[in-house]
């Protein structure tokens, strides 16, 4: 019977599960909302992933959990931090990755790797401040009453940005409202907001060192306006895995495979 390896990433907003086979082929994956019960979300996501691949539970040889709720997953063999998992997930698609930036729903991290030794050398995490996370953009989208997709579309159109000087999400919100009241062009406000997110994560990136290949993971990596703002700030276009949101879970699955061998 074929054996599989699972990675379970319980984030504060969403839970992701990835299944790979012994040849590291990605077999199946799934994303659900975490809600208030991480363990249930993990079970639900796992069931869904297995169903999609038509695989039974007992074919999973090893499972590793990661993310904010990693200790909740009682059925995992081991818990590993999302820092290590995102690093391994990034290396899977980009074997020369040296800098990884993960902007998640509620936190963000910058990771410096040694791709040859496949090791995390240093990292920085921002968990205290909503500015510099997906939450910042959500709050603004809500405030401006536009969908996230439209927000990105408009931001990409802007030729220049209106600078948001506040460091705090709450103050920035007030600043944006005030700009709208002054009839400032909304594309420029939106470009400014995306730049604000990038400015917030930039010190973390500088701290770990920005080296090629520079990879972006996490849900916010799907936001093309963020990618553009990052490229403008950093000078290097970030590389993005095909499904950036599941990078952590994928890394966990890969570590589960490695774990089996040790």
């Amino acid at each position: 019977m074929k054996k599989y390896f699972a990675g379970i990433d319980i984030g504060s907003l969403t839970t992701k599960v990835v299944l790979i086979d012994e040849k590291t082929e990605l077999v199946s994956s799934c994303v659900v909302y975490t809600g208030y019960d991480g363990l249930s979300a993990a079970k639900e996501a796992l069931e869904e992933t297995l169903k999609k691949a038509a695989i039974s539970r007992d074919q999973i040889q090893q499972a590793i959990s990661t993310g904010y709720g990693r200790h909740l997953v009682t059925f995992a063999n081991k818990a590993v931090t999302e820092i290590t998992c995102h690093a391994h997930g990034a290396l899977y698609f980009f074997p020369n990755a040296r800098t990884v930036l993960d902007i998640g729903g509620q936190d963000s991290k910058a990771i410096g790797l040694d791709p040859v030794a496949r090791r995390v050398i240093n990292f920085r995490m921002n968990d205290k401040c909503a500015a510099g996370t997906g939450r910042f953009l959500e709050v603004m989208a809500q405030r401006l009453r536009i969908g996230m997709d439209r927000m990105v579309e408009l931001a990409l159109k802007a030729k220049k940005a209106l600078e948001i000087s506040s460091v705090c999400t709450v103050f920035a919100e007030t600043e944006v409202v005030s700009m709208v009241a002054q009839n400032k062009p909304v594309e420029e406000i939106l470009k400014g907001l995306h730049q604000a997110v990038v400015n917030r994560v930039y010190p973390m990136l500088r701290d770990v060192g920005i080296k090629e290949e520079f990879v972006m993971t996490g849900g916010v990596a799907k936001n093309r306006a963020i990618l553009k703002a990052l490229e403008e700030k950093v000078g290097i276009p970030p590389k993005v895995p095909p499904d950036p949101q599941i990078t952590g879970a994928l890394g966990a699955a890969l570590l589960a495979l490695e774990n089996k061998e040790s």
Binding site: Y68, A79, V80, T81, E82, I83, T84, D107, R119, V120, I121, N122, F123, M125, D127, K128
Partner: peptide
């Protein structure tokens, strides 16, 4: 110690040889 700090510590230890 916050949860995030526990994660930082874990990640740091994971990265040590």
């Amino acid at each position: 110690l916050s949860m995030a700090n526990f994660t930082r510590l874990d990640a740091f230890l994971e990265g040590l040889r």
